[in-house]
């Protein structure tokens, strides 16, 4: 009985290795260089400007429709 428990514990310990990250694999490539040079901010600004433009356009459309609604209501 004791042997079985010990065997079970040993197997548990060994199988834990299967869940750990394999250290021999090369690290996953991420855009660290892009962040180091700091220029990712340029991309963020460009996208933010585009999105702000689209949102501004939506606001304009919204106002135009509101004006039309008021005019037709009269």
């Amino acid at each position: 009985m004791n042997k079985k428990i010990i065997l079970f514990l040993l197997m548990t310990v060994f199988s834990a290795g299967a869940f750990a990250q394999d250290a021999s694999l090369p690290p996953v490539e991420m855009a660290t260089g892009l962040y180091q040079s700091g220029k990712i901010y340029v991309v963020v600004i460009v996208l933010a400007v585009i999105m702000a433009g689209i949102l501004g356009y939506l606001v304009m459309l919204d106002r135009k429709v509101s004006n039309l609604e008021r005019e037709i209501e009269k």
Partner: peptide, 28 residues
């Protein structure tokens, strides 16, 4: 509508600048 604009703009900024887990195949 202001909330929608704020959330979407936040997504663009935070979505690019906050850290993400390094996953094989997926990368950035």
């Amino acid at each position: 509508k202001i909330l929608a604009a704020a959330l979407v703009l936040y997504t663009i900024v935070a979505g690019f600048l906050l850290s993400v887990p390094a996953q094989p195949i997926l990368h950035e």
